[in-house]
Computed example of a mutant assay.
Amino acid sequence: MKIIALNGSPRKGWNTHQMLEAFLEGARAADAGTETELVHLFDLSYTGCRSCFACKRKGGPSYGRCAYPDGARELLAALAAADGIVCGSPIYFHDITAQLRGLLERLFFPFHSFRAGETTLAPKPLRSAMIYTMNVTEEEMRAAGYPQNLATTEGYFSYTFGHPPALLYACDTWEFSDYSLYEASIWDEAAKWRRRQEQFPRDLAAARAAGMEMVRAISIDHPA
């Protein structure tokens, strides 16, 4: 069993990265034989879909898979062969980061069939999860319509791979190591720190539990 985590954040060691690590920790705890990998997307050089349509050419050697030769190519092949994918992203302007969005374009589009009566060309169903981290509170997130906006991308996981993604939100997160260095007076640093100490451990625990649940679901999908 292989689960790949995609870190769509440019910041290593911070909220999104920690949530993904907790998720993978939970997956390994559920089954010691689970292989996990975490990929930092900002370490790779690639773009979103180029609309070259090599993945749609009749009889083409790249039918149903992305053939564009850049830094995403090997990762896309690994994702197609994985049993589970967990994506993590901070929310920028009500959406996932451009790096994660571009990678998902490259993942989804080759598997979407243009043949009448055919839907997905994905080699197999797989399980997925989306982890979102953000500065706003849960109440502000819902009032601003984040879940509705993010649902479109989530729906493509269901359409392409046969299962809806598990969803985790870490809200009102700790953003700076030292708030005094930044013009950020809209935040109450003391309140942010209390939140960090009290709520973020719960968020990490939820991520671990989600990782364990993904392994259980995969085991049911593909019994030994």
Rank of each mutant, 00 (worst) to 15 (best):
D31W: 05
D31N: 14
E35H: 07
E35K: 15
T36S: 14
L38R: 14
L38Y: 06
V39E: 11
L41S: 07
L41M: 06
F42R: 08
L44E: 08
Y46Q: 04
Y46K: 02
Y46G: 00
T47R: 08
C49Q: 02
C52M: 07
A54D: 13
C55E: 09
C55R: 08
K56T: 06
K56S: 03
R57G: 02
R57C: 01
K58E: 14
P61S: 13
G64A: 11
G64H: 11
R65P: 00
C66A: 07
D70N: 11
A72V: 03
E74P: 00
A77Y: 11
A78C: 03
A80H: 09
A81S: 13
A81Y: 04
A82W: 05
G84K: 09
G84A: 15
G84V: 08
G84T: 09
I85V: 14
I85K: 10
V86P: 02
V86L: 08
V86W: 05
C87W: 00
P90A: 04
Y92Q: 10
Y92M: 08
H94Y: 15
I96C: 05
T97S: 15
T97F: 08
Q99I: 04
Q99F: 00
Q99M: 06
Q99R: 09
Q99S: 01
L100C: 01
L104C: 10
L104E: 01
E105L: 07
R106F: 12
L107H: 04
F108C: 07
F108N: 06
P110R: 01
P110D: 07
F111Q: 14
H112C: 14
H112G: 09
F114P: 00
F114S: 09
R115V: 11
R115C: 00
R115H: 07
A116R: 12
T120G: 06
L121T: 02
L121C: 05
A122L: 09
P125T: 13
L126I: 12
R127G: 03
R127Q: 13
S128P: 10
S128E: 10
S128F: 07
A129F: 11
M130F: 13
M130V: 13
